[in-house]
Design a protein around this nucleic acid. Structure first.
Lengths: 360, 360
DNA sequence: ATGAAAGCGCTAACAC
DNA sequence: GTGTTAGCGCTTTCAT
């Protein structure tokens, strides 16, 4: 029994039924399938319910229907400025589909991520996994169970939204070239990050085409300190411009540069990524926009559409039978849809014409 | 019926019971009250359950017990850098009490906040309301229903954690005085914000005692733009130092100052609040630490303790019968506990000795 | 168009 | 120590 008074407020469907002098089914229908009832009845029931302050019990509904009306978004670190806008727009979009959202913070650990997912799974209809650290296998297992949308992780056959930084990256390289820079440094992100992989690749390709050299400087987990501490390596490399994995690293570089009396952009050009902090600082950072907010909205939309098409979301049994891999753009309605968000360069205060020989 | 296959995976307690050749109650007990069973049985049941991949159905459990194992945290804007660390530590703390957390973003609107709460209430055991925009009355109504913990909102009789900026603010004023500043400006926050109120009051009091004048400059909703645009007013005021409502505003001021060729800290001193961005920028901001993370952890702890003491959390019927108001510190276990988080000044790069007459 | 009744998966008296 | 039984509040056939 549930007699203990830890119980939800407590106007039940039965109370409404009694007050409205109809059966419980009628009350239920008034909410879920009003077209089956006479308008008068619906009106009457709804009014009564409102008067009594009736709120359907989600748990009971879920028990009966198997639908919870909840989704979960899990991120590696909500304090990383990339994620809040994403989560925010996701939540706002979910709200308009009347979905409540659980937030899980995995603290950058695959293990915690798995635990969180297991904990949340039984009360959630679908997941948005942003930059998941989880192994591909586990993700596929989960996706076989219920709709999953990935953000910035590219697993064939699973719905995902990818922030494609190649556009912005390319623009950045081209701009730096035009400004006369010849040696670039890339302050890399975590090796297992899809975004970092994509950025490395693009950078290598475009720089080569443009006839520039790019030195990759590893920073491990990206942070202000990591950026600041890699300035020595940057200087050593002889680069006159750097592109950082994200804005936080970029700020660190800025600080490190300043300590050495290298002024930006006079002596050195700097480009960040994600546009998370870039507009908020002084000098404002030149950066590659990332549209985290659009990604959040897109992920929500994708998940919602998966939820609506009855048995989508669960991946097909096999796993290799997809269409031509590496395709871009939307795959209409399919469980393995992939939406790519384009990026561009936002030029602000930290890039300028190269002053040959100033650095080193 | 719930025949539709939108259903959760599907190993039920009955399946486990059958497989283990015991009754359903035994299976249930093996999980919830193992001490009531013989160790052998427990072992046996648990093994069987694991083998079958049994996961308890949260909805059913909730329906039966009235406990959901969920809490909700609602914030006005998760993209405001003050909140992510708070939410993060809250979530981490909740996790260790095996509570899942819903996130609600009210988009700074009292109305949306109310809607969110109503939507979440039926599947949540308690709320953490961070800087709620909701009316006092609505908050009290909610708190009469279930445990509620407020952050940065001071309602007598309701559990709350308050970030007390008076410590840090006082230190800031004293430091500025020592550096020779005599006219201060305060870039104010929203009038209905508890934090802003506290900061204004402290500032007025301490400045007076220290013999300094402080000009309050209203900025409305605090933002980078608001800070930047209020530089004209700052200059007009003749202040040689400013304290901003938060770090974001502070960065705006920094930018605005720079445009006018006023250099910080050489010509002007600047103090931020909350330490959200301050350490990540260049120059690093002198700021009043806010311990948003500690606040999150404290709020979680408070809510958890409320959840554990059977009928706490619901406020007493009346509402005025509390003990002496305005007390500080913990009130052990009571529903109206108030924990205050102290703050201090973190001196970084944006404060220096006043250069009389440089500004204006 | 509406009511009656069964049952979702679980917990908690209450027997034994 | 373990089984039996009665619901938690809701949706949904199936009758009417």
């Amino acid at each position: 029994m549930a007699s203990r008074l830890g119980r939800v407020a407590g106007v039940t469907i039965g109370d409404v039924a009694a007050a409205a002098r109809v059966s419980r089914s009628t009350v239920s229908r008034a909410f879920t399938r009003p077209q089956l009832l006479s308008p008068a009845t619906v009106e009457h029931v709804l009014t009564t319910a409102a008067r009594l302050g009736y709120v359907g019990n989600q748990a009971a509904r879920a028990l009966s229907t198997g639908r919870f009306g909840n989704i979960a978004v899990v991120v590696p670190d909500i304090a990383n400025p990339f994620f809040p806008p994403l989560v925010r727009s996701l939540q706002l979009a979910a709200e308009s589909a009347d979905l409540a959202v659980f937030l899980g913070d995995s603290d950058e650990s695959a293990e915690r991520e798995a635990k969180l997912i297991a904990r949340l799974a039984p009360q959630v209809e679908g997941f948005v996994l942003a930059s998941p650290r989880l192994s591909e296998q586990l993700i596929r297992e989960l996706a076989a169970t219920r709709p999953v949308v990935l953000v910035n992780r590219d697993l064939d056959g699973i719905a995902r939204v990818l922030i494609d930084s190649s556009g912005g990256m390319t623009e950045a390289v081209l701009l730096l070239k035009k400004l006369g820079h010849q040696r670039l440094a890339y302050l890399a992100g975590p090796r297992d990050s899809w975004s970092d992989g994509q950025r490395r690749t693009t950078l290598a390709r475009v720089s080569e085409q443009a006839g520039l050299t790019v030195e990759v400087i590893e920073t491990g987990r990206p942070s202000y300190a990591a950026g600041r501490d890699s300035v020595a390596a940057i200087v050593r490399s002889g680069a006159t411009a750097a592109i950082a994995f994200d804005d936080v690293v970029s700020q660190g570089v800025l600080a490190g540069l300043e300590v050495r009396g290298i002024s930006v952009p006079a002596d050195f050009s700097l480009v960040g990524c994600d546009d998370t902090l870039a507009a908020l600082t002084s000098p404002a950072l030149t950066t590659v926009s990332a549209g985290a907010a659009s990604a959040g909205a897109a992920a929500a939309k994708l998940l919602i559409s998966l939820l609506e098409t009855p048995d989508s979301g669960r991946t097909a049994a096999g796993g290799s039978a997809g269409p031509a891999p590496g395709h871009g753009g939307d795959v209409g309605g399919a469980g393995g849809a992939c939406v790519r968000i384009g990026t561009h360069l936002v030029v602000r205060g930290t890039t300028a014409v190269a002053r040959a020989g100033v650095v080193t």
